[in-house]
Write a protein that binds this DNA or RNA. Structure first.
Length: 423
RNA sequence: GGCAGGUUGCCCGAGCGGCCAAUGGGAGCGGACUGUAAAUCCGUCGGCUUUGCCUUCGAAGGUUCGAAUCCUUCACCUGCCA
């Protein structure tokens, strides 16, 4: 595998380097051969999300450029909890963490290559941390961490009033130890992570210098936020999950398709592997005719393909075209409509009996979270049956409403579709 | 262990015996305007067999015709002292 000398320039152009240790030194190291690097993922949920995807894709960029990935899953750090500003985390049981470690590992693996000269390696910090004695930990690791310096970290300082446990306070030691171990045992000399990890990243670099007299590098990727600076992830149920069980690929695709104009270029650079020229072309086109949403379309298609694969993406595109095409739903066949609605979300009911009322259908399809919510939606004029506004919450659809004898198309608001299959 | 303050709906945060399903802000949701964009304006925002009923204000008891509001105990959080 040859080394791509343009890697660092590309990362900078994409805006992927928000902070870094000595960039010139890193440039030199990357030019000198396949650099062993690592990036860690803590199992704080059953699935990774948008923020983690930045790291996964960045790892792939480095591997594609000839460098050697060590993907770390935090079986140990996940037991402790990285301090966050909003407050103390709830500790998860060992069993829960172990299960999440496995799920997270399986999510990462498809993105990396485990073959060839620069094959990736999966590691779990539980392996070298679980048996570590308290005495050794305090003498060998703790001795290198001045508490005054630890206290000055932003996250820690922000927690001094509300309180922070010794457990979370110590987190940085564990992550730093990971870097030191990977440096000693595998020759890993680079770590990157999200910008919120900056303190932990530099902690490791410094530990390597103090404990092993070594030189290591680190950089942080930017925090991806909405145009107004707030966090993404307020979509249904919270974060933008990569797991298809936790967020349907259709919803995932729709998320990217609905991104603000101002963010399209930035997101294309961070989340796609499209080359610079192509991205700039899309941006120019988008700037000229934003209403065509070419940027969002390219973004949604590429990211969904990366995460859920090309076949699924094609199905979603077809579904979106059918539902948002603006044509008359009645002209669609049951097969086409069914395929689209199954992507968007659907429920089925028994056709031998009277159909449920619209409010009940809204709840059954998940478009409304309760009957009260459903009634409210109808009262607000936000409920549609086959693209016609529903006025009466107790309205019962009849046989004539069935498209191609099978489907009812429900919609809440402008863009939330769901199907009801009558059989 | 002592003293003080706190625990309210998704989040922040008012309420301090009846007018409280509970002020206000944010997020969310719907409508209008649009381009499945942003901004803006309006509405909505516990549940239900929905002009009324039910269950909520850390937990459990109690006082009262009536409690998120008063009392007791417990749990947890914060600060000061030991």
């Amino acid at each position: 595998m040859s080394i791509d000398p343009t890697l660092l320039d590309d990362l900078e152009w994409r805006g992927l380097i928000a902070h870094s240790t000595d960039l010139d030194a890193l440039r030199e190291a990357l030019a000198g051969g396949s650099v062993r690097f690592y990036v860690g993922f803590d199992p704080t949920a059953p699935s990774l999300h948008m923020g983690n995807l930045v790291q996964i894709l960045t790892a792939k960029r480095l591997q594609d450029a000839g460098h050697t990935p060590y993907a770390l899953v935090g079986g140990a750090t996940g037991m402790i909890g990285d301090p966050k500003e909003s407050g103390e985390r709830t500790l998860n049981s060992l069993d829960t963490v172990k299960e999440w470690v496995e799920r997270v590992r399986r999510q990462i693996e498809p993105f990396l290559s485990f073959e060839g000269a620069n094959a990736a390696t999966m590691v779990n910090n539980y392996d070298w941390t679980a048996s570590l004695s308290t005495i050794d930990f305090l003498r060998d690791v703790g001795k290198h961490f001045p508490v005054n310096r630890m206290l000055s970290r932003d996250v820690v300082r922000s927690r001094l009033d509300a309180g922070i446990s010794y457990t979370e306070f110590s987190y940085v030691l564990l992550q730093s130890l990971d870097f030191l171990n990977l440096y000693r045992d595998h020759g890993v000399v680079l770590q990157f992570g999200g910008s919120d990890q900056w303190g932990n990243l530099t902690g490791g670099v410094e530990l390597i210098r103090r404990a092993a007299g070594g030189k290591a590098h680190a950089f942080a990727t930017p925090l991806v936020t909405k145009a107004d600076g707030t966090k993404y992830g307020k979509t249904e149920g919270g974060a933008l999950w990569l797991d298809a069980e936790m967020m349907s690929p259709y919803a995932f695709y729709q998320f990217w398709l609905n991104v603000e104009d101002e963010k399209v270029g930035e997101l294309l650079r961070i989340f796609t592997f499209l080359p610079r020229a192509e991205i700039e072309e899309i941006e120019a086109e988008h700037a000229e005719k934003p209403f065509l949403r070419a940027g969002q379309r390219a973004l949604a298609e590429h990211v969904t393909t990366l995460v859920h694969g090309p076949e699924e993406t094609e199905r979603i595109k077809a579904a979106s075209a059918a539902l948002f095409g603006g044509g008359d739903l009645a002209t669609l066949s049951a097969a086409t409509l069914g395929a689209a609605l199954r992507e968007a979300g659907s429920a089925s009911v028994d056709g031998d009996e009277d159909l449920p009322a619209v409010v009940d259908l809204l709840v059954a399809t998940g478009l409304a979270k309760s009957k009260g919510d459903a009634r409210r939606t109808v009262a607000e004029g936000g409920a549609y049956l086959n693209n016609a506004r529903v006025e009466d919450p107790d309205h019962v659809p009849g046989p004539d409403d069935l498209i191609d004898g099978t489907w009812l198309v429900l919609r809440r608001g402008k863009k939330n579709f769901a199907g009801v299959e009558v059989r």
